[in-house]
């Protein structure tokens, strides 16, 4: 058997990937599944408890707070992020726009900062009394917005703050996708629509949207999966706490707290597997609703 034969080659090519994947993803994942049926504590204490962790999870109010927060975050991020970035992309896509590349870079540049460094920066920007966020709002509301507003220590402001940073980081990123997709829409279709007398809205609904549907779905699914894994942003912004009244507690943070603050890796694993299940369901639902799983769209 020749290693270079077309029959064998794909397996050879996939081998390094497969080996690392099995050892560093599949095996730990399997271990964590086993762990999720135990309660662990300290060095080497591990008690098999069957499905008790999962049963407790269903009635654990904190877990549901985390689920609610995570869903809120994902929902609001998507509801603002997708239209905003699509809007920016549509505007930028206009012909003869002055400084287009500069503007595009301006929107995209926050993404280059990355989550961790952005969190460090925003702990200062959200500070009461001198934070830039308050200063900006103070200026544009002509002084009605209080400089003493404490973004990160008032329960009702934490989620808006998280969504804000998230938008800052990712609007430009999804905008790039939309921009590329828009450039891929056949210009003749617009012409045809124009000839048919379609207004801008009709053109958007009938030509643009169908033309970029795949990208919209892609962005929504990727953002959803990313949103469900929200951890570093609130963890760093809220200085390693779930925030006032647990307003910044997310599912992954709850997992982390249980596993690495309380030391119950078993329960943490159960949370992880529940999260996995949730993410899977939501993404599958999104794909299903959008018809991306239909036969003709596969492969």
């Amino acid at each position: 058997m020749k290693l270079n034969a077309p029959k064998v080659a794909p397996y050879v090519f996939l081998t390094p990937f497969a080996v690392i994947f099995s050892v560093f993803i599949a095996w730990p994942l399997f271990r964590s599944l086993l762990l999720s049926f135990t309660i662990t504590s300290g060095p080497g204490a591990q008690v098999f408890v069957g499905t008790a962790n999962y049963r407790f999870l269903l009635q654990d109010p904190d877990f549901w707070i985390a689920v609610r927060n995570t869903f809120t975050f994902v929902l609001f991020s998507l509801l603002i992020q997708v239209p905003l970035s699509l809007g920016l992309a549509l505007f930028l896509n206009r012909k003869g726009l002055w400084m287009r590349n500069t503007l595009r870079f301006a929107f995209f540049s926050p993404h280059l900062m990355g989550l961790v460094f952005a969190s460090i920066l925003f702990t200062l920007l959200f500070a009461p009394r001198f934070g830039l966020v308050n200063e900006g709002l103070h200026t544009i509301t002509f002084g009605r917005w209080s400089m003493d507003t404490r973004w990160l220590s008032e329960a009702r402001r934490v989620m808006p703050a998280l969504v804000m940073v998230n938008l800052w980081l990712y609007v430009g990123y999804s905008m790039i996708y939309f921009l590329a997709a828009l450039q891929g829409v056949d210009p003749q279709l617009y012409e045809a629509a124009r000839v048919d007398g379609a207004g801008p809205l009709a053109r958007f609904l009938n030509v643009t949207l169908p033309g970029i549907r795949h990208v919209v779905i892609f962005v929504v699914v990727i953002s959803t999966i990313g949103g469900f894994q929200l951890f570093e942003l609130p963890w760093l912004l809220l200085s390693n706490t779930p925030g006032p009244e647990k307003s910044g507690l997310t599912i992954v943070m709850y997992l982390y707290q249980n596993g690495f603050v309380s030391g119950d890796l078993g329960y943490a694993s159960a949370i992880g597997w529940t999260l996995l299940f949730l993410v899977f369901c939501v993404s599958a639902l999104q794909l299903k609703l959008s018809g991306a799983l239909r036969k003709e769209n596969m492969a």
Binding site: I39, S41, P43, G44, A45, Q46, V47, F48, V49, A52, F56, P61, D62
Partner: peptide
């Protein structure tokens, strides 16, 4: 809630304790 969490904890000295 804290009591609930306490009750959830197994009796560490019974049960199947895996020795490492």
């Amino acid at each position: 809630y804290v009591r609930l969490q306490l009750r959830r904890m197994p009796d560490w000295n019974a049960g199947r304790v895996v020795e490492i």
